[in-house]
Nucleic acid binder design. Structure first.
Length: 741
DNA sequence: TTCCGGAGCGTTTTT
DNA sequence: CGCTCCGGAA
């Protein structure tokens, strides 16, 4: 017991041992927030404030949820089974399975991941004969999810124009289609749960009485609906009130673009009159210079709850700054530096190369590859998103739920079995006439097209029967074999890796089955084959798998700054610190976009434990054209005393109205003088007081941002990216551009 | 059904 | 520049 609280600093201790009450913990980067969260749970239980059943802890990623469970079981020998620990979506899934009847869902409902959802929307537009040029599926998906995440059903959308009215109709049709097919998309998991809790008083009271302590990780990332769900579950005074313990960092909120609402932090304080706000500001990760840089940077943001990191580890090394001529010079410098660090004994996996956008990884990869440095890029396709895996899952989905038209269309002719577009069209027409799912429509078809379709239905029926008594992994194996998938990929030239992935799927099923068998699952679920299969399919949708596999390999880590959140490395290289790239040009016109970019930069800087490199280039190849960017304003926001320039410091600060000419002789510089000649000078260009990154307004095109410039004097032209009309090249002598912002 | 070429586009991403 | 997607031809 006393062990539990050992080595906590005073603030951590205060947070962990707060009496049962609402609390907001502002946990800075590297301040031990997961430790506080898990220790709090242990402390509550050990001191009898609450039983395991009374705990609900919610996270954003499966990784975080797993981490919490692991740490908890290491902390004290309690059965974590009674607790509800998981992601928002995972917990809602569990809730809806338990109350599927009240939620208006069949027990074996399927979960659509984003890709499935998009396919479902495309199919809807097709059956309704809607022009997908006018209503781009992606845009519609975004619209629908946006409404759902704001808790708004079609009937409640305020539509003022025809376009929106039509989109609302499509939203309604989409809902009907999902209901018909017994499928639920990600935001629907949350909205259904929320609505069920709201309208069903017995269920609401049951859970409000059960959960005495609700703990939320990464609270700054919650969206509107998630916060409302938490409020409902916590209850208010009359219905018995759970304690909300929210941990978050407003300075690390970088997901507004996908609905995260920082305002939730302030709202929480206000709505619950939170008596305890505790700041965890002692950082155990980085050296002083790095933290000072991060603090200085983030102090330029105005909308903050306020917090300042400190460490007792000493100042450490200065932050290294490098100016390159081109992106490939920058990459060359980084890779040479990496090699020398590796020679000094630093492990490659302790080195991270971070960038703002994925496109930047290419040059780095190229350089790493030709220098023979092992590297690993994060991001890209994940296991359960691979086409062969999705195909196999589609067969399984049809076995579990024949009404799933998305799964049906996916594999009805894969591997090809002579069911072409016309037979499918005939089937879809018939399905509309009979108002039945595709699968059920097949028997209604007469004539030739019916035969091959009937054979397909026969195949699925046979698979269902043959696998009914099999353990999950044998079922998966059997389905892969009998569907013809295995043969198909065997015959495909590049099919070897796909076959391996299918084997991996069988392994995943075996592991899943083992966990189910050992009782690591909620008690409120059945154990028959159908249920186990449904659970496995839900698992596949909710947890698309790590794209962080073989993390153990000794390789340099490449990823976007977003992907790096929550991670830490001894050495961090942050490249591409240029206006337009970081901060990204698209963010400049968004309200508060710049502050979000700055938070992103703050996240990047605080990833480094010992050494941080910041680099930028004079020119960069982007979208097939060379761009000359100014160095990032964020670089200027880091005090010079904390930095050490590896190239001759360039006194020109960005955003001076009159860019001064700059002289630089590469021959005289040490240590790693870039070998490329400097690009055409843009330094002496007179942009009439304008600069790249500047937001401007044009009488006809509206508001935009300058993204590139060329020529000088009366020839000077700038490229402006307009919010409405896209990118345009404009002659400065002709176009009248007014600086704004 | 498959393959090729042209057009279009090009932040960040979990569930 | 390099990728994805779509449509047309073999």
């Amino acid at each position: 017991m006393s062990q539990l609280l050992d080595n906590l600093n005073p603030e951590q201790l205060a947070a962990v041992t707060l009496p049962p009450q609402h609390a907001l913990i502002l946990a800075g980067a590297g301040s031990g927030k997961t430790r506080v969260l898990t220790t709090r749970i242990a402390w509550l239980i050990q001191n009898g404030f609450c039983s395991a059943q009374g705990i609900l802890a919610v996270t954003f990623t499966n990784k975080a949820a797993k981490e919490m469970l692991t740490r908890l079981s290491a902390m004290f020998p309690i059965n974590t089974r009674g607790m509800w620990i998981g992601t928002f979506h995972g917990l809602c899934n569990r809730f809806l399975r338990a109350h599927h009847r009240e939620a208006g869902l069949p027990q074996l409902f399927q979960i659509l991941d984003s890709g499935d959802q998009l396919a479902s929307i495309k199919r809807l537009l097709k059956t309704l004969n809607v022009d997908d040029e006018k209503f781009p599926p992606r845009e519609l998906q975004h619209f629908i999810n946006g409404q759902k995440e704001a808790g708004i059903r079609p009937a409640a959308v305020e539509a003022w124009d025809d376009y929106t009215r039509r989109r609302v109709e499509l939203y309604m049709e989409y809902e009907a289609q999902c209901q018909r097919e017994a499928v639920v998309d990600f935001p629907e998991l949350l909205l259904r749960s929320y609505e069920l809790l709201e309208r069903n008083e017995p269920i609401r009271r049951h859970y409000q009485a059960r959960f005495r302590h609700i703990l939320v990780d990464e609270f700054q990332d919650t969206n509107v609906l998630q916060y409302r769900w938490l409020k409902l579950l916590a209850g208010n005074g009359d219905e018995g009130c759970a304690c909300l313990f929210c941990v978050g960092d407003d300075d690390q909120s970088i997901y507004r673009f996908r609905g995260a609402e920082i305002g939730n932090m302030r709202d929480f304080e206000r709505d619950f009159k939170v008596p305890a706000v505790i700041r965890l500001e002692q950082n155990y990760r980085s050296h002083g210079n790095i933290l000072d840089a991060a603090n200085a940077l983030i102090s330029n943001n105005s909308k903050r709850l306020g917090k300042s990191l400190w460490t007792d580890r000493g100042a450490g090394e200065p932050i290294r700054v490098y100016e390159a001529f081109t992106d490939s010079d920058e990459a060359r410098f980084i890779v040479e530096e990496v090699q020398s660090l590796v020679r000094e004994g630093i492990s490659r996996s302790d080195i991270a190369l971070l960038y703002r956008s994925n496109a930047q990884s290419r040059v780095l990869e190229h350089q790493l590859f030709s220098s023979g440095v092992a590297y690993r890029v994060y991001g890209g396709l994940r296991f359960f998103e691979r086409q062969e895996v999705k195909h196999a899952l589609a067969y399984l989905r049809l076995i579990a739920n024949p009404d799933d038209d998305t799964a049906f269309t996916r594999v009805v002719n894969f591997p090809t079995r002579g069911i072409g577009a016309r037979s499918l069209e005939a089937l879809q027409d018939a399905a509309r006439t009979w108002n039945t799912p595709l699968y059920q429509t097949v028997p209604h078809l007469s004539g030739k097209p019916g035969t091959s379709l009937a054979q397909f239905v026969g195949l699925i029926e046979r698979l269902r029967q043959e696998t009914a008594a099999l353990p999950l992994h044998e079922m998966v194996d059997h389905v892969i074999e009998m569907s013809g998938l295995r043969t198909h990929y065997k015959n495909e030239k590049e099919g070897q890796e796909r076959l391996e992935n299918l084997d991996e799927l069988i392994n995943a099923a075996a592991n899943f089955n083992a966990e189910v068998g050992s009782g690591e699952r909620p008690a409120d679920m059945g154990t028959d084959t159908g249920t186990v299969l449904a659970e496995f399919l839900a698992h596949a949708s909710l947890e698309a798998g790590d794209h962080q596999a073989d993390a153990g390999t000794e390789a340099v880590q490449l990823m976007t700054v977003h992907a790096a959140k929550g991670l830490e490395f001894d050495v961090v290289f942050l490249s591409g610190l240029e206006e337009g790239l970081f901060p990204h040009e698209n963010s400049i016109l968004e309200s508060d976009g710049l502050e979000e970019e700055r938070r992103l930069m703050y996240v990047a800087v605080t990833r480094a434990r010992q050494r941080l490199y910041l680099s930028f280039t004079q020119s960069r190849m982007l979208h097939g054209q060379v761009r000359y960017n100014l160095r990032s304003r964020f670089l200027e926001e880091i005090p010079e005393a904390l930095t050490k320039w590896l190239t001759p410091p360039n006194p020109r600060r960005s955003f001076v109205s009159e860019p001064s000419p700059r002289y630089y002789n590469p021959g005289s510089s040490k240590p790693a003088a870039p070998s490329m000649p400097p690009p055409p000078p843009q330094k002496s260009r007179d942009l009439g007081g304008l600069s790249i990154g500047q937001a401007v307004s044009h009488i006809r095109f509206g508001e935009g941002v300058i993204v590139a410039a060329e020529g000088s004097g009366s020839d000077a032209r700038v490229q402006v990216k307009f919010a409405e009309s896209g990118a345009k090249w404009l002659m400065l002598a002709v176009a009248k551009l007014t600086p704004i912002g």
